[in-house]
Write a protein that binds this DNA or RNA. Structure first.
Lengths: 336, 336
DNA sequence: TTTATTTACGTAAACGTTTACGGAATAATA
DNA sequence: TATTATTCCGTAAACGTTTACGTAAATAAA
């Protein structure tokens, strides 16, 4: 309850509320002396306009929503960093929602946001079956920009990274350093993001004349304990000499599993992962990563959302692709 | 612009808007048949009440703000995770603001939030000089809960960790493992959080009969390059045999500096840091950490804010202290 | 039966802005 | 001088809810 409002300012200045409102918005209809008087008093009294009254009347909220699977995640927290900075420049407010990879929660958030609470949505999809029709409806009612976790079948503006090329190059790198039996830790497989990464893996194998063995593909499980068990089991039984992990959360268990199994990275097993771990350099051994430009993705996604909001964007179905960086470190080093 | 509103529902059902509103809010004044009719149509049409109209009329927003220095930070992203979960249970919305350690930005955010945009604020203060009077004014207008980065001179509910004991025990641990010249990487020194950590360091030195040398205390600088230079310089010139870092961001440069200086952790220098790095275990060497219960701090802080909002909290000046955990790893191992 | 109470709903005002419309005073033009 | 345009401001309605107040009908109490 902001104590002081436009009516009080108006009364104090012997003006109408309309004039005060216009003065505050720097309308051409108001004389500069009046504007000055209004501004002065507003500042003196620390007047802040009631955002809800304003939003109700103007039918816009100066607020955007960010819907992501998890916030405690290097990639997403960096992306939000970028989003928040852009929003702040524009005097917009940022609402955060976590889906914890649940499609149900995701849908419920979106439903509630259709009430006009936000002017637009930035979303990185939860993995799991996507309801295309549903999301199509949403895009018709509210500007939506998808980032990183996208789905080709859903129309909309998308910001992604070069997932296919990144995975392809990663596998190529493993092969060049001597790997012949390369496992893939699979995640996001319902999304284009995950499919592209997997396809890059497949194609790199094929182009190098390596067989494509289903047993080398390990699905991400329900929780981290299960993941660890699967991965350890996989390494022990299949004895891969290289692993590409499609997400950071599946790469870490490899370290623990190898320690447990008395295997040396990179001598027995080379490891590379999509990861935005800031200090991958300091791991033992340091981890070769495919580093996504998370902050830039956030900046780009938010920037485009604002262009859409200002009707300065006319490509409702464009996908913008930023490049990830392969950072070679000890975990994929060739034997000397 | 939510297409469909209460008036439409009312018209469709031959009811007044008031009745529809009351039915949706499950008022006792409405018959169960009418409620059922209203609910059915609302569901069928995917009706979502306009939050701004509602907030304007009821003078509450169902929204809270979280103001933090940085979101791309292990501690803060985990804390927000906790906050968001609690907010979701209560059907509240969470606005995020980053101060980047700027007191100016922090103040400007708070100012704008006094407009009634949020029902309460969760804040972890930026380091730098605190304007006590200013924040006192804020607390009078809006419920505020401080977490982790707090200041004793500011009245309010606070959630912190046992910073003093944690630092004390960390130094004790270093001493027990043979350190005699322990450096301290200082940050947050304008806040109680930082002061308590520093005091714990001092007292542990004193209680063990070690001298308190100003040269062993390194101030956090303007940016990470500067920090790295200072720290490397410090290690090279002062040759400490142990370091306690008050924040994670200052511990990582130690790794790089030691590599550069050809020093071995822990043999030449033992390192321990306040840190919420998830995989400190995997560093080379693994890092002994003081792990703060970040998620729980978020949960606790949000929980108390909601108690305040529901007037179920009557201790406007209470400080709740959660315990951090000292996790001993290789970086502080004694010589064998 | 009469009066009091309860039930179930409608009317209208209010929340604090913004803005379409109008109009008086002044300045510009014919 | 008469007319038109411009400048500057006020009135009132609107945004979509919620709620104080009122009331007719149904029920209970006397």
């Amino acid at each position: 309850m902001g104590e002081i409002n436009i009516k009080m300012l108006a009364h104090e200045l012997n003006l109408s509320a309309a004039t005060v409102s216009r003065a505050l918005r720097d309308s051409y209809e108001i004389s500069s002396e009046t504007k000055a008087r209004v501004l002065e008093l507003a500042k003196k009294l620390n007047y802040e306009p009631n955002p809800y009254a304003s939003s109700l009347r103007r039918q816009k909220s100066k607020t955007i929503a960010v819907i992501i699977p998890e916030i405690a995640n290097n990639f997403f927290s960096q992306a939000i960093n970028g989003i928040e900075e852009v929003a702040r420049e524009r005097d917009y407010h940022v609402l955060i929602y976590q889906t914890h990879e649940s499609r149900e929660i995701e849908t419920s958030f979106i439903m509630r946001l259709l009430s006009g609470r936000v002017d637009g949505i930035l979303i990185s999809l939860a993995s799991g079956a996507v309801d295309k029709e549903y999301l199509k409806n949403v895009s018709e009612k509210l500007p939506v920009v998808f980032f990183d976790r996208v789905h080709d079948d859903i129309e909309g503006v998308k910001i992604t990274t070069d997932d296919y090329e990144s995975a392809y190059n990663a596998v190529q790198h493993l092969i060049e350093n001597g790997c012949k039996k390369i496992g893939y830790l699979l995640a996001l497989n319902t999304l284009s993001t995950g499919k592209n990464r997997l396809q890059g893996y497949f194609d790199a194998l094929k182009d190098n004349g390596l067989p494509n063995d289903q047993k080398l593909i390990i699905m991400s499980g329900a929780n981290s304990d299960e993941n660890y068990a699967h991965i350890k089991n996989f390494i022990a039984e299949q004895t891969p000499d290289g692993i590409l992990s499609s997400i950071e959360a599946l790469a870490m268990p490899c370290y623990y599993a190898c320690k447990e199994l008395n295997l040396n990275i990179p001598n027995d097993l080379k490891l590379i992962s999509f990861s935005n771990l800031e200090h991958a350099q300091l791991l033992n051994p340091s981890l070769t990563t495919i580093n996504q430009p998370a902050f830039e993705i956030g900046v780009e996604a938010a920037g485009i959302l604002f262009k859409v909001l200002n009707k300065r964007w006319y490509e409702p179905n464009e996908t913008i692709i930023l490049k990830s960086t392969l950072i070679k470190r000890e975990s994929t080093m060739a034997l000397i």
